[in-house]
Nucleic acid binder design. Structure first.
Lengths: 193, 193
DNA sequence: CCTAACATGTAAACTGTTACATGATTCC
DNA sequence: GGAATCATGTAACAGTTTACATGTTAGG
């Protein structure tokens, strides 16, 4: 059985259950969106247009079970893992398939080419990277880490571990950019005299 | 004038010139592929299928100039920046458009979900991340850093700076994964007694 | 009452990769 | 002679995002 990455991510989120409730269990497509937005999306993002059709496919494949669960008059459908879904998730986690660590960042591309502009403009590029990661740190602390702490209380430790990696990554970027800003300022200063 | 990201990456590479020659200047699509593979591809990758059509478009837009430059009977076309191309590159570098730092990595996704499997399997996931980054460090040192040092001799300092960031990133990943492996081993040890 | 967030989706567009095709040259 | 690399591309496919459509409910 070969599933898309989106399918495995959704299986994993179904297993974790809603972040803001103290028990594991069923969740809607929207719940999954919200949880992704403060956790896995830092390593793999899914759009709503991928989530809803995939939930249906998982249900048809017998890996998830859906129930109608309207809130008031608003229709809503919640899903939970089946034993087959749990087994499929575990098989995927244990399967050693090659995975690349890929970064996609235009700001770093610009920095790579920064010799084409003068020192002031280059410093702005480094500064933009620093400001962005400082904002990311704020957001991570307020959202990803809080959610992961709740998961940990439910016995899931790895969300917090990966959250810590996110923090460390952006701290590294802040320090890198700050160092570069200072170096550029020093170099253009000494070039001026 | 609105160009694709691929276009700007190619303009930037045209400006840098071939890595292995001591002067700036014209380069073929293949040269660009090779240089990308040891530099910008760590932040933004392009496939050959994007490079060749884009070079033609850049030529038609007057941003690059192409000349036939066959090697023996093998046909080949080299390109160089026009003044308009240089200006467009600089305008892009100075334009403060929002850029996200995006990571895509299935291994980290698996780690996030690692509570679904037992300690041994979870440790394997951390180990896979460590081994992969150790290999990446080797490759970066042997290829990206060497190329960046040549660029620096030609007066371009930022390729080396971004190369250093790549090293720091993977060193962080190695340390993170190693710490996690030890923690998992300790935890499952103490759970066993 | 109005706005923001909740909630579920679909169609079309876009981006990007894979696989393939072709042929020359260099190195073992 | 055969393999690897040089060199240039195209067509088909896969993956993803954007924009839209639709209606509900809670809060100011």
């Amino acid at each position: 059985m070969e599933l898309s990455t989106a399918a495995y991510v959704i299986l994993g989120m179904l297993r974790l259950g809603p972040l803001d409730e103290p028990r594991h269990g069923a969740r809607s497509g929207y719940d999954i969106q919200r949880s992704l937005a403060v956790s896995v999306r830092y390593f793999w993002n899914l759009s709503p247009a991928q989530i809803y059709p995939e939930l249906k496919r998982l249900e048809q494949a017998g890996l998830a079970r859906g129930h109608p669960a309207p809130r008031g008059k608003r229709k809503r459908r919640v899903y939970e893992l089946t034993p087959a879904g749990q087994a499929e998730l575990q098989a995927w986690l244990r399967r050693p398939d090659p995975a690349a660590f890929e970064v996609r960042d235009l700001a770093l591309v610009k920095l790579f080419f920064a010799d084409a502009v003068d020192a002031d403009d280059a410093r702005q590029l480094a500064r933009a990277i620093r400001l962005r990661s400082e904002a990311a740190l704020d957001e991570l602390r307020n959202r990803a880490i809080r959610g992961a702490e709740i998961s940990q209380q439910k016995g899931d430790r790895f969300p917090l571990a990966t959250g810590a990696l996110g923090l460390a990554l952006h701290e590294l970027l802040v320090n890198f950019a700050r160092g570069l800003e200072e170096e550029i300022a020093r170099a253009s200063d000494s070039a001026q005299r």
